[in-house]
Design a protein around this nucleic acid. Structure first.
Lengths: 201, 201
DNA sequence: GTCTATAGGGTGATAGAC
DNA sequence: GTCTATCACCCTATAGAC
């Protein structure tokens, strides 16, 4: 039996570092050329390798996209986990959440393309990667429950509003804040609507 | 001087027909493979030609994307022109407009990708094609002016809401109506907000 | 106008030496 | 683990015969 088991193993650690380096370079290139413009030869040379060597770290190009996709949802989940929920200020809480999502989207066009559009011909996330995105979505629902947004219909309206603000900001004013600055107004509009509806029914 | 002038010329008409046939085939292939997955060889064979022959009809692949892009905005403009504006029923008018936009987006994923996402590495619309999209946007503003939506800020909020509903519908429930059926509710929420704001100020 | 041939690249992936 | 060499394609675009 050789010393290959356990996460503390030196070889395993080095391998993980190299994988991380490759993924970082992939993000850089995708930022420059669009998510669908990534090439393995260029990715390899970016980390001082030849293309075939990448295959010791990833099984295929699709596997690289898979890791990037899952990483995107983990980052989003981390950002959402950091948001503070103040039940006494639902509008402020919601506005902060919308702003955080817009900032997340605008921080990386490539990540946005990968996570939220089907921009890569012939690729879709593997079931493992997809599961990460579903888990992220499910956790993101919980804080809104605490604000009283408990109907699927209302939550769907919120995802539409939030993603719409983010995509307009990204597409039409990537370096400005034309839509981002509407976050608070959008939050007010939305919370007023949800609150009045409950009273009315 | 030969008989090459005028739109009634038979050769010119035939040429236009072939161009239209090529564009139709391009839409079909892009629907199947994604907008960035189009290949000229396959496009040519789809209309019974070889790839080089396409160059008698279009100067380049980018020129084909350009025509498709402009055609998309012309279709959208036509749909919006057909909408009836009822000043006595702003919510109904707005709801119909949102539904029409969602239907337009869901009718063609490829068209949505081409018009609203930067899914093609290395391509962006030429200034001519871009001008068509700007003209379309500007005309789409006018009916909302008649409903009393006259501030840029309010109009931006509306584009975010509408495009958000459409993109969520397209991405997460392409064959259903999970977001489309929220159109009326969204219109109510939005019009209530815009109306109350004016009263308050 | 359409073709063949081809320029001049590119792609992901694999075999097998070291 | 990394390399060279290569497979087996792909691509857009052009030259020039017919």
């Amino acid at each position: 039996m050789t010393a290959t088991a356990g996460p503390g193993n030196i070889r395993e650690r080095r391998r993980g570092q190299t994988r991380a380096e490759i993924l970082q370079a992939a993000w850089r290139l995708c930022e420059r050329d669009g998510i669908a413009g990534l090439s393995l030869r260029e990715l390899a040379s970016e980390v001082g390798m030849r293309a075939p060597s990448l295959y010791t770290y990833f099984a295929s190009k699709a596997a690289i996209y898979d890791e990037m996709f899952a990483a995107g949802y983990r980052e989003l989940e981390a950002i959402e986990a950091d948001l503070e929920v103040d039940p006494d200020d639902p509008v402020g809480t919601l506005a902060a959440s919308i702003e955080a999502f817009i900032d997340f989207c605008c921080a990386s066009v490539a990540r946005f393309q990968l996570m939220f559009t089907r921009a890569i011909p012939g690729w879709e996330p593997s079931s493992e990667a997809y599961a990460v995105s579903v888990a992220s979505y499910e956790r993101s629902v919980e804080p809104f429950m605490r604000l009283g947004i408990d109907e699927q219909r209302h939550f769907d309206l919120l995802t539409a509003l939030t993603s719409g603000l983010a995509s307009q900001q990204l597409a039409n004013d990537p370096d400005g804040d034309r839509w981002r600055r509407l976050s608070r107004e959008a939050a007010e509009m939305y919370m007023t609507h949800v609150t009045h509806e409950r009273k009315g029914s």
